[in-house]
Write a protein that binds this DNA or RNA. Structure first.
Length: 636
RNA sequence: GCCGUUGUGGCUUAGCGGUAUAGCGGCUGAUUCGUAAUCAGCAGGCCGGGGGUUCAAAUCCCCCCAACGGCUCCA
């Protein structure tokens, strides 16, 4: 119960109109007035229904107590719904109000304004310190009279058929050794492969206890890459300039290589779709993800969780000849949305809005699809390698249906040979999903959690569903077999992997760093004192990469230290020595250790050439921050 | 989503019923310096948000939000 007590010179009311819940009243109760009275505005609440006598008791006591304090002897009980957003039923409210009225009426003068009527009132509040009080009164609750909350209008989650299927899908886990032999996990010695062991544990044993938070969360903030955004939904991150740069380089890199090496065509498709579109509705049911949904005027829209819809709808309208195959399209989806469960979200590992390259390949038949599948498998390995995630850093999982395996043992064997290390295999008796074969590369992080990066799937359902066809050499319409490929996996997740790797380096007393092409600052120039600044400027202008100048008034030691904490790969100090020699003293991070920096003397040309070699054939963007450190605001 | 833990200036944190601690960062001044933290002063807080209990709440209670861990799941 909410109760507002006003000590008044007078209070008066007059009924205007009955509402449907109005109580029946005598003619005399349509208006009322009390002089020198306590006005008690009361809202009876849902919780009060659990024990009305207790609330009546407590409210009466509270009113009596206040009457004594303000030295008044009259009370106007006034039902006032606006004090609460969780009102009781009208019946309860009337019962409680009458109860209070009865209890008080023996001792003092009480008037009660009728319940359920529109009323006008006038009150003249006295305004002394005790004249305005508001209280919340809660009923005492016995266990016996608590209202059960179970079964009271709970919203049922809309769960896709795929999610349901997944919980019943029966599968077998095996290890495929480098000779292409399937072995039971218990029969395979995993001790030589600790990371695979961890991945297997993660997938099967479900033993996932961890005491610490993943280290990349602190790093992503400290390095001003990304951060949580409280103003949005969980799992929707903000990216600071350095983070945007890294993302943007990886995005460009993956798309450019897919286009130039694979002949993919870059496209752009909408991020939201009509939930009631007949084709999409069926597909939603086959994809194990939860969606964000938006009501917009008449339509019920959902946010895409990949680029499949857009590209398939495009494929549907295309005229495709067998001569065109394989046809490939790629989109860097910024964003793909998946409304993952709250407890599954962590840092950059798992998001609700993420950036993912999504490439689809239409192939003639299963033969064409398997040929292409292997090419994309090898492509994914190389893509991750350049980003800085090496073959040793991830574990391979291959999943297929039993039938597919029987028909394609050679392909599977070739895949293990390619990575030359044992892989985890999952085999289904029946096909539950839209694919017959998929692989993923799983990164195992510092706290032994695995998450998927690159993946390719062979889809045997969606050509039919979206009515995608091509004309074969005899002029008849055929269904292509479709491949889904994310060459790098989510870009945010690549950054997460790089940061977790860096955290691993720190633990092993190695200096952490990004690949040079992804380092926000590639070269930092530090003048020893004011008088070296002009020369430092000149050096800056001759360096062809992302270079900045630490022009702040700080000691040299501190500037060096800060360049280190920002993981700058090349640091140049400019002082009298350099002015005289015309050479540069360059600290090279990749060759330094925690104890001491590795310094090398070289010319500007030599430095340019060095970095040129390290970053050739990789995208380049200019420095995303002011060149002068004195001009830089702090984000974190 | 469910269960548990946590939430104090921009960051890291002390306090855990009675005047909000300190360090870093910021600003001002001094210092012009050779490879991982120069010195001094100043400013900065609705103690995650809302409600309640109390003479008094950062501190106790309830609700909400967020982060972390577990269940679950994936790019």
């Amino acid at each position: 119960m909410q109760i507002l007590l006003l000590h008044s010179d007078f209070i008066e009311y007059e009924t205007k109109k009955a509402t449907p819940v109005a109580e029946k009243i005598d003619e005399s109760a349509h208006a009322g007035r009390l002089e020198e009275a306590l006005a008690a505005f009361i809202a009876v609440e849902k919780d009060d229904e659990q024990n009305t006598s207790s609330v009546i008791e407590k409210a009466t006591d509270e009113i009596k107590k206040t009457l004594v304090q303000v030295k008044a002897d009259k009370v106007m009980l006034y039902p006032y719904a606006h004090l609460s957003s969780s009102l009781s039923s009208p019946d309860t409210a009337i019962k409680v109000l009458k109860g209070i009225e009865n209890k008080l009426s023996g001792e003092i003068e009480v008037m009660r304004a009728p319940f359920g009527w529109y009323k006008g009132f006038t009150v003249k509040c006295k305004g002394h310190p005790l004249s305005e009080l508001s209280k919340r009164i809660e009923p005492d609750v016995d266990e016996g009279c608590k209202i059960s909350k179970e079964g009271v209008g709970e919203d049922e989650d809309v769960v896709s058929e795929a999610l349901k299927a997944e919980s019943v899908a029966k599968s077998y886990f095996k290890i495929l050794d480098t000779d292409g032999v399937l072995k039971d996990i218990d029969d395979f010695d995993l001790s030589e492969h600790p990371k695979l062991q961890k991945f297997v544990d993660y997938e099967i044993s479900k033993n996932r206890t961890s005491k610490i938070a993943p280290p990349h969360v602190e790093l992503m903030r400290k390095l001003e890459i990304a951060d949580y955004e409280n103003g949005s939904d969980s799992g929707n991150m903000r990216f600071y300039p350095k983070g945007r740069l890294i993302k943007s380089l990886i995005e460009r890199y993956v798309v450019d290589r897919s286009v130039s090496e694979f002949g993919a065509m870059e496209v752009e498709t909408p991020i939201m779709y009509d939930m009631n579109h007949p084709t999409l509705k069926k597909y939603l049911d086959r994809f194990p993800a939860r969606q964000y949904s938006i009501e917009s005027d008449k339509r019920h829209l959902f946010l895409r969780f990949a680029a499949c819809f857009g590209q398939f709808l495009m494929n549907h309208d295309m005229t495709i000849s067998y001569r065109n195959l394989p046809v490939k399209m790629i989109e860097m989806t910024r964003y793909s949305f998946r409304k993952e469960q709250r407890g599954e979200l962590v840092g950059l590992r798992r998001l609700r809005a993420f950036t993912m390259p999504d490439m689809h390949t239409l192939t003639t038949d299963m033969q064409g699809a398997t040929d292409e599948f292997f090419k994309q498998y090898a492509f994914c390995i190389d893509i991750l390698d350049k980003i800085g995630i090496k073959l040793d850093d991830f574990e391979v999982a291959i999943r297929f249906t039993k039938d597919f395996y029987e028909d394609n043992k050679d392909l599977i064997t070739k895949m293990v040979k390619e990575v030359n290390k044992p892989v985890l295999v999952e085999m289904w008796d029946e096909r539950f999903f839209y694919f017959v074969l998929k692989f993923e590369f799983n990164f195992v992080d510092m706290i032994d959690k695995a998450s998927a990066l690159s993946t390719v799937q062979i889809d045997v359902e969606n050509a039919e569903r979206y009515d995608i066809s091509y004309t074969d050499e005899k002029g008849s319409q055929k269904r292509p077999v479709i491949l889904h490929c994310s060459p790098s996996g989510a870009v945010e997740r690549c950054i997460y992997a790089l940061l977790e790797k860096a955290a691993d380096d720190i633990e092993n007393k190695k200096l952490p760093m990004f690949p040079v092409w992804l380092s926000p600052t590639q070269v930092r120039v530090i003048p020893v004192s004011e008088k070296h600044k002009n020369y430092a400027e000149k050096i800056c202008s001759e360096i062809k990469f992302r270079v900045d100048l630490d022009d702040r008034e700080m000691t040299l030691g501190k500037k060096i230290r800060e360049a280190g904490t920002e993981w700058v790969p090349y640091v140049i100090v400019i002082g009298d020595n350099e002015l005289e020699s015309g050479k540069l003293t360059v600290s090279i991070r990749s060759e330094s250790d925690m104890k001491k920096g590795f310094k090398k003397e070289m010319t500007v040309e030599e430095l340019n050439e060095l970095i040129e070699n390290e970053t050739k054939n990789l995208p380049y963007r200019t420095l995303p921050l002011p060149k002068y450190l004195s001009k830089r605001a702090k984000f974190v």
